[in-house]
Design a protein around this nucleic acid. Structure first.
Ligand SMILES: [Mn+2]
Ligand SMILES: [Mn+2]
Length: 294
DNA sequence: GTCCGGG
DNA sequence: CCCGGACAACGCTTT
DNA sequence: AAAGCG
């Protein structure tokens, strides 16, 4: 049993050689190392945000499960955000990451996927970014096209937007905002923008709720902008054979042949060396939403 | 990964 | 003792 | 009530 002391907090690390990504041979130790190295880049999207973790104790092929409520056996220093559910009244001690030791502890729990709220504990009702979650059915080409149309509309609205791969099959667009708008306001605005896209390309994109009525169109998921919902954090690993990473992209990287598998645990460091952290300034780029659309 | 309850 | 089950069978929006 | 989502 290895132990790690991180600013007074002792984290016990176990089974570091256990293989979690069989095809690539990446181990639990690689997982923990990855998040330690990525902490400077990922911290903005974890600190003081309620998190939902997807754990894979037996690797990406084994049984997995989600965890958001902090278990009793967690160390007493683990950071949590207690939130009472609006509908049921149940109190959930949401796990969060306010310090490196928190991240190392959840990594040792085999948290491959880190899903975070759009708002922080400080202002739970007011997100500091809005999110377009583009869910493809057919493939990446259509999704890229939809993303470019959204980008054009956002440019016209003079809203700066940030792009990343989801790490699975889709794309995420984050629009940083001043934390003064409610989830309802943000959701309504993004719905309007989605409707503009569909007006231009009705054969390409959809926002219909019923899955079987979406055909093979790209689902522009704006409904993700809601309390209690989460989105994979930038730089979150994914349980894919290639150990993909949800990776920030430059808008000029949006090409028809974009392949999410090209952005993974193996080459993300190299990419950071080349391009730096493309999302470094995201949270500092607070924006007001266009009043005429609210 | 860890706890718990039942064999 | 070991094994199987639970941990987001949650909470939220929309129809 | 139930679908759909992370
Ligand atoms: Mn998605
Ligand atoms: Mn979605």
């Amino acid at each position: 049993m290895n132990k790690l002391l991180i600013s007074k907090n002792q984290v016990k690390l176990s089974n570091l050689t256990k293989v979690l990504w069989p095809k690539k041979g990446y181990t639990k130790g690689d997982l923990i190392n990855y998040y330690i190295e990525m902490y400077p880049m990922i911290q903005d999207y974890l600190i003081d945000r309620p998190l939902s973790l997807k754990l894979f104790p037996d690797g990406i092929k084994g049984k997995s499960f989600y965890r958001k409520d902090c278990p009793d056996y967690a160390p007493d220093w683990l950071s949590v955000i207690p939130i009472k559910s609006h509908s049921s009244g149940r109190l959930i001690k949401w796990i969060t990451v306010n310090q490196l030791s928190d991240l190392v502890w959840i990594a040792n729990q085999t948290a491959i996927e880190l899903h975070a709220w759009l708002s922080t504990g400080e202002k739970l009702e007011y997100p500091d970014f809005a999110v377009f979650d583009l869910d493809p059915v057919r493939g990446m080409e259509d999704t890229v096209q939809v993303a470019l149309i959204i980008k054009k509309i956002l440019d016209e609205l003079e809203l700066k937007a940030y792009l990343k791969t989801s790490g699975a099959s889709g794309l995420h667009i984050f629009i940083p905002v001043f934390p003064i708008y409610t989830y309802v306001q943000i959701r309504d605005l993004l719905k309007s923008i989605a409707e503009m896209v569909i007006e231009v390309k009705p054969e390409l994109a959809t926002i219909v709720w019923q899955k079987d009525k979406r055909k093979d169109k790209v689902y522009i998921d704006y409904r993700q902008n809601a309390t209690n919902k989460t989105i994979p954090a930038p730089y979150s690993l994914r349980p894919t054979p290639a150990a993909t990473v949800s990776t920030p992209l430059n808008w000029n990287e949006l090409k028809q042949d974009l392949d999410p598998a090209d952005f993974n645990l193996n080459n993300i460091k190299n990419r950071l060396d080349l391009y730096g952290d493309l999302w470094h300034d995201l949270l500092a780029t607070r924006q007001h939403l266009p009043g005429f659309l609210l």
